[in-house]
Amino acid sequence: MKIQIQVDGKHVEVQQGISVLKACLINGIYIPHLCFFESSPHPHASCRLCFVDVDGEPLPVTACTYIVKDRLGIQTNTERVRQLQRSAFTLLLSMHEVNCKSCHANKRCELQKIAKFLNTALKQKTYPTYLKPISIDQNHPCITYYPNRCVLCGRCVQSCQYSVFSFAQRGFETTITTFGNRDVTEQHCENCRRCVEVCPVGALLMNSHQHQNQINGGNSNEMSI
């Protein structure tokens, strides 16, 4: 069934039961988002970027978890929404090694897109930058992982049908891990590339492409357990 909603004053018709974020994206209205992706089974709303103001809610809500209602009024660009988005984004970037020239995601990176959209710099100066000591992790036999580019959105964790990935450690140390699965057969990794494709930034790379990326000067220590 279709229902009517109003986004930034514009009437749009959308499918009942979907999230505000999906409804907006389908209708070409962009809301910054990282942890949500098309085939995501259940949004865990961890990136805190998709805030919108909706009628009847005292505070901004995350668009990826808020389900549309008939005649719902949505504002995607209020000042407080932008403030929340900018702080969340700046915090993310305070743990990010911005070096787009030598990154394979350059020009199709979600961070670049969001920075442009929010009109903020990729090289943030608000907070001290915290980088992890290991910038390249080659534990997985076919995928290279760049911890300092990872935004911990969890898309790769959710997208892999064999749960090859998981979050490890916690706090500032949190990373994505494959637990050194040298033996692919044992881990069922089928080399399906799904994880690499859903990654919104340049944190995962199929190894065949790796030579193109050797130009960056990261130290390639292996992560050990």
């Binding site: 998981s166 490890a168 450690q169 699965n181």
Partner: peptide, 30 residues
């Protein structure tokens, strides 16, 4: 390390998942 592999077999979950949980808690050492 062998424990991660073995426990993942016992519980039929991925090794990464076991390792992820284990590293979250300070009480476990490797």
């Amino acid at each position: 390390k062998e424990a991660i592999v073995k426990v993942s077999e016992v519980l039929s979950i991925s090794q990464a998942a076991v390792y992820g949980v284990a590293t979250f808690y300070n009480q476990f050492r490797f």
